[in-house]
Design a protein around this nucleic acid. Structure first.
Lengths: 333, 333
DNA sequence: CTGTTAGCGCTTTCAG
DNA sequence: CTGAAAGCGCTAACAG
């Protein structure tokens, strides 16, 4: 079932059929409908490979994430898909499971399929580099690798963290722990910066040794949280730097029967479904994740279409969502 | 950067370079390494479109889901991606947002890119039909459209529902409501069947009018649950047929201050993260969703490779996960 | 306005 | 074992 068949069915040449279906170029009205009817009758579906080979874009856009099972990335992917589909593009989704080799393999696949552009949410630096080098339009999402020439959409991590910690300080907490799982990317680093900045701005002394870094592949994060809390019984509040560590913290507090917020207040960076369902609701820094996906895709589409050539960075603002998990030290919700 | 450049760099012909890189066909050892080095030096990435055009498969596999923001589908997609990536395929993910037109557009896109196969999780019947008609290998996941010739992986909905409701009946409940959002697919229908079968098997009379169908695009599901509960104050337990309605039910019980399980027991079909985090844990029918994605992809790969030509159906078994939300009527956890 | 021609990058006979 | 040649399906000049 090729264009040739359609042309024969309509009694015309392949080029005319091509023009009739593509819409550009001159075609007589009568012929045009005849070709369209023939195509419909035969159930003709144009071959993207042939079109791509001829120099036009594949219409495919790659999205690389580091863990699709994490609701954060799922939402991001949903936003990206939405914006791409509206523009008639397809999304090729690759999950690197946090491994740089897989990220590279994904990037190579994107190159091989001549992807119109790529969105990168994992950012091992190597994938970004490879793609940019080959001239593929790239937008980094959530994290930045520092490679020049690519667009980026991020969320103001420092600001979100500062707001969260300032909220706790405002309630009177002075022994606030921060729990994170990486400081190698700007997300983790900036959230730590925000934690410090909030203390500075409040004129509160920066507690020593209240930073717990679980690492990206923790054996048993909840156990680590447990021993940390055992070692620091004077902690009255915890700032969890993302949804994964927030879960570990929450579960551990539950396990040991700590009353939240009476014994310990909790704030999470990243606001997922369960945080508003649990009792008392978990105070969280809401990130516009779906929106971030949409905006990133939009930025990429501008690049692809050539409307814009200069790299652009967008920073979205998070918002603190106050719920029952935060109160003054010792106070019940 | 084409094969021609690599061939020139290696001082050989295109055909030889092709054979050297592809691995099949006769190539002298020395030449082979020379070509490989040249390719590496130039950063050559083969063009999938050209390869596809030449008759080989695109290596792309489509996945159509109805709502990626729903964690169920995100997990499914993650499982699919994992299995596909292991086999060297890429996943093109389309979200139809429950609209049949979008599903069709997605299916057409899959055809246009000559997808090696497609996994269908939304199953408006039309997409399945179109793909099967064109000879694309199709695996239906979670729901079946009834179209012949495609493989399927589903979860035993009736059995899961029966177990859940039998559990409630065993605890002594006799006024058990079932809340669902569709009965047009086998998922909804079978869960309703299971609800009835459990009553039958327990010799319990089937309550009249305790079936609440919220519909797929409910205005305000929680409000509907509220008026239903108002109208049926004698209900002592609720069986929620999926994670979406479970959330509405849970939130409404919380809003009205009903004690779970003392005032009302709850079971959900589909076990998400939040259900084990809330207090008391939500008893749920655990579906192996990620596994279902992997198995479905595996089935598809068998079809694609031609190892198997007969359609095959797989049914996975769910398992009831008992938590605090279910107890005998009137009993506190 | 329409048809002929060439060629995108690759693979694959088929001679050499 | 290697190279020349043809062609996958489509589009874009360029003649007619």
């Amino acid at each position: 079932m090729t264009l040739r068949d359609v042309a024969e069915e309509a009694g015309t040449s392949r080029s005319t059929a091509s023009r009739a279906l593509a819409g550009h170029g001159y075609v007589a009205g009568g012929i045009k409908t005849r070709v369209e009817e023939a195509a419909a009758r035969l159930g003709y579906v144009p071959d993207v490979s042939a079109r791509t080979l001829k120099g036009r874009s594949s219409g495919l856009v790659g999205l690389l994430v580091s863990d699709l099972r994490n609701q954060f990335y799922a939402l991001l992917a949903a936003g990206v898909e939405q914006a791409l589909a509206d523009a008639g593009h397809q999304m090729v989704l690759v999950d690197d499971h946090g491994r740089d080799e897989q990220a590279l393999a994904g990037a190579r696949a994107f190159l091989a399929m001549r992807a119109a552009g790529v969105l990168l949410a994992p950012v091992g630096r190597s994938a970004t580099g490879l793609l940019v080098e080959h001239g593929t339009p790239v937008v980094e999402v959530d994290r930045r690798s520092g490679v020049r020439g690519c667009d980026a959409v991020t969320i103001d991590s420092e600001r979100g963290a500062r707001d969260a910690v300032a909220h706790l300080l405002g309630l009177g907490h002075r022994r606030i722990a921060v729990v994170l799982d990486e400081t190698m990317w700007d997300t983790g680093r900036d959230r730590l910066k925000g934690y410090r900045a909030a203390h500075r701005e409040a004129g509160a002394p920066l507690p020593r040794k209240l930073v717990l870094d679980l690492g990206l592949r923790p054996g048993d994060p909840q156990a680590d949280v447990a021993s940390f809390l055992d070692a620091n019984p004077d902690v009255t509040a915890v700032f969890a730097a993302n949804n994964v560590v927030a879960e570990a913290v929450w579960q551990e507090l539950q396990r040991r029967g700590s009353a939240v917020p009476a014994d310990c207040s909790v704030v999470s960076f990243d606001d997922l479904t369960w945080m508003r369902i649990v009792e008392p609701g978990l105070t969280a820094v809401r990130q516009p994740v779906y929106e971030m996906g949409r905006r990133a895709a939009a930025l990429l589409l501008e690049r692809i279409s050539g409307e814009r050539t200069r790299a652009e960075s967008l920073t979205l603002q998070p918002a603190l969502q106050r719920r029952g998990s935060t109160a003054a030290p010792g106070v019940r919700a």
